[in-house]
């Protein structure tokens, strides 16, 4: 079937969007709608699945098939759907609380199984819908309603978690950089396997300014390292900087007389060790890496799952119900 030429508005549902004015979610919604229009996928073949939380209202605003499920379990619903309907384009929408706290078990297993699904983790480092408690990505010492003396929890690093769980496409984006976010969404869609995108998203009510260091255009140019496969790791507008490797750690250098781009590390998406190192830098003089941190090709779960069915039918033919009911030994009473 030929895919119609879609516009962004074809993916806008008739429901009123009810996020707080100024929320980072608006930008992400807009980029997803724009991106879906250009993916060459029939609109009816998109399935958007979420858990619980501010971000998880997302499916209601998408003119696609959508399922707003229960807290933390979106990857599990997506797994059952994708295993049985591999032709669908499945998108999981979740937040740091939904996915990394109550749903921690499901995301790690979805990643290791490598379903060909897309996972968008809206990370605002706070619980929004329950009105401002610290989350599993909140920094140590954070004062919130539930931590008046500061959080004592060590936060998760979502990129490290995804690397450890066997993710095959692991990327980071930021809500306000529309063009880059769209390219990450396209990259995830094109990847055969689980695309995991951590999206820094500002909660302007309960955790405003969490990502200010790289959210404004000027700050971003100074502090964000946009990763590109095969390109040197350099950034900065006023002062050009680069990352070099000293032993097994990164070091920030200014480019100029002592160092040039040629001295800097070249990004290799297939280098797991380098991805580990990149996942660890963030602030304290280091830039925040954005883009694809790691990528590998591995067979997808649903392919292997359906291949076993095909193989069984090939070998045994379509199931004969009468033979199944009879089983091994029968006897006749006359």
């Amino acid at each position: 079937m030929t895919v119609p030429v879609y516009k962004k508005k074809d993916f806008v549902s008739d429901q009123v969007v009810r996020w707080c004015p100024g929320c980072g979610d608006y930008s992400i919604l807009s980029q997803v709608q724009s991106t879906f229009a250009g993916l060459g996928v029939l609109r009816e073949n998109f399935a958007v699945i979420s858990g619980i939380g501010c971000s998880s209202r997302f499916p209601y605003y998408m003119e696609t098939y959508g399922f707003h499920t229960i807290h933390g379990r979106a990857p599990a619903f997506a797994s059952g759907l994708k295993a049985t309907r591999p032709e669908l384009s499945v998108w999981v929408i979740s937040g740091d609380g939904d996915m990394l706290s109550i749903g921690g078990n499901h995301i790690i297993h979805a990643l290791r199984r490598n379903f060909d699904i897309n996972v968008l983790l809206f990370n605002n480092r706070i619980y929004g819908l329950t009105k401002g408690q610290y989350s599993p990505t909140s920094e140590v010492g954070k004062k919130t309603k539930s931590t008046p003396f500061g959080s004592i929890d060590q936060p998760f690093n979502p990129i490290q978690l995804a690397l450890g769980a066997g993710g095959t496409l692991i990327a980071r984006a930021i809500d306000v950089d529309a063009k880059h976010l769209q390219s990450m969404l396209e990259t995830s869609h094109a990847h055969k396997g689980t695309g995991f995108i951590e999206i820094y998203q500002n909660c302007n009510i309960f955790n405003d300014g969490a990502f200010d260091e790289y959210r404004g255009k000027g700050e971003r140019e100074e502090n964000a390292l946009y990763l590109e496969h095969g390109k040197p790791m350099v950034w900065g507008k006023t002062v050009r900087k680069g990352l070099i490797l000293e032993g097994t750690t990164f070091k920030v250098v200014e480019l100029g007389e002592a160092y040039s781009e040629d001295d800097c590390c070249i990004h290799d998406e297939g280098n797991y060790i380098q991805a580990q190192l990149l996942s660890q830098i963030n602030g304290n003089g280091f830039p925040v890496p954005l883009g694809v941190m790691y990528r590998e090709q591995r067979p997808t779960y649903e392919t292997a799952f359906q291949d076993q069915v095909t193989a069984a039918r090939g070998k045994l033919g379509n199931g004969d119900l009468e033979a199944l009911v009879k089983g091994g030994d029968t006897w006749r009473v006359s």
């Binding site: 399935a47 797994s79 295993a83 045994l316 199931g319």
Partner: peptide, 30 residues
């Protein structure tokens, strides 16, 4: 072993994932 009867089995990571995956499959028409 009933794969040629159109039966697929999925050993999930926990009880919750098991039922959620089943609902996901039902949503998709299984």
């Amino acid at each position: 072993p009933f794969k040629n009867y159109g039966v697929v089995t999925y050993q999930a990571e926990d009880e919750i994932a098991a039922v959620c995956a089943a609902i996901g499959a039902s949503w998709g028409g299984s």
